[in-house]
Every structure is written in C-alpha cells, then in structure tokens.
C-alpha cells in the first residue's frame, strides 16, 4: 500500500507544436520526456521503504543500473489497456504506423513483447508497483558497497510481493514466480532501449538534457 501511495502522477510528453513532424521531433519529444521522468523516478526511489537508508553511492549505483528498466516498465504498464500501442505518456500514444513514420519502430518492436507478457498475466497495479521496486533493488550493479543492505531491501520487497500474492491470488501458488520470471525480458528490453538511445546520442542530431545524458553515460 505504501508503494501505491508513492506512485508518481501521470506524465505528459507535450510535443513542441512548432517542430515539423518526423524522426527528429519524435525523438526530441521522447528524450525530453525521459529526462523529466528520470527526475520523477529518482524522487520515487527515495520513498521506497529502505532505499534512503542505503549509502548515497549505493542509491546511485542501483538507479544507474535500473533506470531504463523502470522507464520501460512504466511505459508497459500504461500500455496494458491498449492494442499494439505504446503509451509513452498520457498524451503520446504511438501505434506501429506512427512508430514507423517517426523512426521509433525498433523501440516499438522491442517493447511490445513485454506488454504481451504482462497482458497474458493480467498484471495488477499492486503487482506492477512492487515489481518495479524489485527491479530497482535487483539491478545487479557491480559497484555495490554494502551488499547486505541491498539484499535486505530485496528481501523486504520480495516479501511484499509474496504477501500480496498470498492475499489475492490463492488460486495460483506460482504467481509470484511467474511475475519474477518476467524480469529477464525486462532487462533485455531495457538493454535494447539503452542501445537505441545511445546510438541516437552518438549521431548527435537530437538534443538531450543533462540528466538523461548522464544516465546514458552510466550505462556506456
């Protein structure tokens, strides 16, 4: 219930109406959105019980490893009610045709399998918020100072997921496992998304804000 309370408000892409439609506009919109959503994610992480008790260095390491998984999981959850569309933001819903015209097809095709996977599981909001916190705590950063403290954070979030499933899904005793078994696909998808944006950064045609660049650099 605490994770539900700290869940951030809806986010809006607000594409620049003065820019001509196309590849540059679509990516400029997404990079600006990602930068603003990262600020929100950092604020959200601080409210996860136990996260702020970690050292500042470990908080940074977890976020630097997991930020794209969290961004992707947010997009995926927003898209669960749609058919083959991705809800990047409340006002930025992209179908395959739009994705093709705006140079977002690779990203679109990379994220959709994850949407299908969670649709099949009928993932609920309670499960989504818990899984998202688990993804952050389970980011496999190689730079963790206090491994025991991070393990305690993982354990408490894992326990929250088990409690949730114990209370709501007595008909499927394997549901916790099924949800956790989606995390490899989430990591794979986030890796593709990082690669996508990293190559855009290298091409240098799309403006990127500093935080987004900083987080991309941490993944380089």
């Amino acid at each position: 219930s605490h994770l539900l309370v700290i869940e951030p408000e809806k986010i809006y892409a607000m594409p620049d109406p003065t820019m001509p439609d196309g590849y540059i506009k679509a990516l400029t919109t997404l990079c600006d959105l990602a930068d603003r959503e990262l600020v929100v994610i950092i604020g959200w992480a601080k409210h996860i019980p136990g996260f702020s008790s970690l050292s500042l260095a470990d908080q940074m390491s977890l976020l630097q490893s997991a930020w794209m998984e969290i961004l992707v999981l947010n997009i995926v959850f927003r898209s669960l009610a749609c058919e083959e569309e991705l809800v990047y933001a409340e006002d930025y819903v992209v179908d395959e045709e739009h994705a093709r015209l705006s140079g977002l097809l690779d990203l679109h095709v990379a994220i959709l399998p994850l949407v299908r996977r969670y649709k099949k599981l009928s993932m609920e909001k309670e499960e989504f918020v818990t899984l998202k916190a688990i993804a952050l705590s389970n980011s496999d950063s190689t730079h963790i100072e206090n491994v025991e403290a991070v393990q305690r954070l993982q354990d408490s979030l894992h326990e929250a997921l088990q409690d949730l499933e114990g209370a709501h899904n007595t008909e499927d005793p394997r549901r916790t496992g099924k949800l956790l078994m989606t995390l490899p696909l989430l990591r794979q998808t986030a890796a593709k998304a990082v690669q996508h944006f990293y190559s855009i950064k290298v091409q240098g045609k799309v403006p990127m804000h500093k935080l987004f660049l900083e987080m991309l650099e941490a993944k380089a």
Partner: peptide, 15 residues
C-alpha cells in the same frame, strides 16, 4: 562521482 553530479544532487535534495 563527479560525472554523475545531477543524480547525486537530486538524491541529496530532501523533497
């Protein structure tokens, strides 16, 4: 750490 100064600053902010 100097390279990640915005993340560092946002984590230190109390809000």
């Amino acid at each position: 750490k100097e390279k990640h100064k915005i993340l560092h600053r946002l984590l230190q902010n109390s809000t």
